[in-house]
Amino acid sequence: MRTIRKFEFLNARTIDEAVNTLAAYKGKAWPFAGGTDILRMMRFQPLPENLYPEVLINLKTISPSLEYIKEEDGILSIGALTKLVDIANNALVGERYSALANAANKVASPQIRNMATISGNICQLTHCLYFSKPDNRFHCLRKGGSECPAQLGDNRYCSIFGDVNGCVAVNTSDIAPALIALNARIKTNKRMVNAGEFWDVRVPGSTILDEDEIVVEIQVPRPPPDAKSVFMKFSIRSSIDFPIVNGAALIGDGVARIALNAVAPKPYRATKAEEVLKGKTIDETAAEEAAIAAVSEASPLSFNKWKISVAKAIVKRMVLNTKSR
């Protein structure tokens, strides 16, 4: 087995310590939470030499702990280091924010859900077959290279909604679409960001976070009482795999929010489908119309037209699933 690349490991005792240390190392230090994504990356080394962290800063030693779930004044607050298993099994989240609980329950495998945190899931690197090949086999745009091998190569699982900064790799977070559908906010040590504006495509990062910024809390407003939220994921195996397309929807009580992920470099909000559903009673026809609208702006690559049908089916089923209460 490959050994993990060398690094220094530091325990942060407070958020200030973590952030100061991140700032002191000027991009050469990365925050460390569950570690499932970062250690895989440090083992298979898809990045060029200059992009690896030299220091990992452990956030799990921060006190008071960033691992909590509570609901106050109609807002669900989830600490950044809350494990996915705890979100999936939380009765309160399951009852009122079911899209989020179901999304957490569909991430990877039971073992990974015991390790991985919600903030790590939303900050995971977007990747494609080329980006994640070991030993920087393909020096693509997201690694500071000059071309995207997926545009003309194997792009079966890539974006169907065009590129961002030239990259067509997709964001594979399961939590992301649930947060967008539930209109969540992400609190960092510097600011409060709406979930819809949190993601970006950078070298090599996938969020808008600065190098000395960490996620501190996720805040989800309680959905209207008659609205129902759902999450759906399509992947080859029902466990362990990343999604091929996933999505979440919050529909009812005058609200219609639909988000898809793994279809674009950033989580995709299907605003066209939301407009179609405004003021309509949910039935088979409305769901079909919403599904068509959701993919109306798709521009597939050479090998991934099939993902449009998958995305359509997911939107249709999600809309229909919000009907039955």
């Binding site: 220094e8 530091l10 030299e54 220091v55």
Partner: peptide, 19 residues
């Protein structure tokens, strides 16, 4: 690990993460 680097940066070490 980490101690030497922290000194190099020349920041006060009391508010930084420790190995």
């Amino acid at each position: 690990p980490g101690e030497k680097k922290t000194d190099d940066i020349g920041v006060e070490s009391k508010n930084l993460a420790k190995p």
